[in-house]
Simulated assay, not measured.
Amino acid sequence: MTLFKTIAALALAIGLAAPAAAQDLSPVGTWQTTTGESRFVVSYCGDGTQICAKLTWLRRDARKPENVAMLNKLVVNGARPAGENQWRGTVKYDGQTVDGSVTLVDEDSMQLSGCMLIACKNVDFVRR
Results as ranks from 00 to 15, higher is better:
E37P: 00
E37G: 02
E37M: 00
E37N: 02
E37K: 02
S38Q: 05
S38V: 00
S38A: 13
S38I: 00
R39G: 00
R39I: 00
R39V: 01
F40H: 07
F40M: 02
V42D: 02
V42P: 11
V42R: 05
V42F: 12
V42A: 02
V42G: 04
S43L: 00
S43R: 15
S43P: 06
S43W: 00
S43I: 04
Y44D: 05
Y44N: 12
C45L: 07
G46Q: 07
G46K: 05
G46E: 06
G46M: 03
D47P: 15
D47R: 12
D47Q: 14
D47T: 13
G48Y: 06
G48H: 06
G48R: 03
T49L: 02
T49R: 12
T49I: 00
T49C: 01
T49Q: 10
T49P: 09
Q50K: 13
Q50F: 07
Q50N: 10
Q50Y: 09
I51L: 08
I51P: 05
I51F: 09
C52N: 11
C52P: 02
A53I: 06
A53W: 08
A53N: 08
K54V: 10
K54F: 00
K54W: 01
K54G: 02
L55V: 04
T56K: 08
T56A: 03
T56L: 01
W57L: 03
W57T: 00
L58K: 10
L58H: 14
L58N: 08
L58R: 09
R59F: 06
R59A: 13
R59Q: 10
R59Y: 11
R59S: 12
R60D: 12
R60K: 11
R60N: 11
R60Y: 09
R60P: 15
D61H: 14
D61L: 10
D61T: 12
D61S: 12
D61F: 15
A62V: 01
A62H: 11
A62P: 09
R63C: 13
R63E: 14
R63Y: 13
K64P: 10
K64V: 07
K64Y: 14
P65K: 12
P65Y: 10
P65G: 05
E66A: 08
E66W: 14
E66R: 12
E66C: 02
E66D: 14
N67T: 03
V68K: 15
V68A: 08
V68I: 14
V68H: 15
V68T: 14
A69E: 15
A69H: 14
A69L: 08
A69Q: 15
M70H: 09
M70A: 13
L71E: 11
L71F: 13
L71S: 08
N72L: 01
N72A: 02
N72H: 12
K73P: 13
K73M: 08
L74N: 15
L74A: 09
V75D: 01
V75P: 02
V76L: 11
V76T: 04
V76W: 00
N77W: 04
N77S: 12
N77M: 02
G78V: 01
G78P: 03
A79C: 11
A79H: 04
R80Y: 09
R80D: 04
R80E: 11
R80M: 07
R80Q: 12
P81K: 10
P81V: 01
P81G: 05
P81W: 09
A82N: 15
G83A: 11
G83H: 15
G83E: 06
G83S: 10
G83F: 10
G83M: 09
G83I: 08
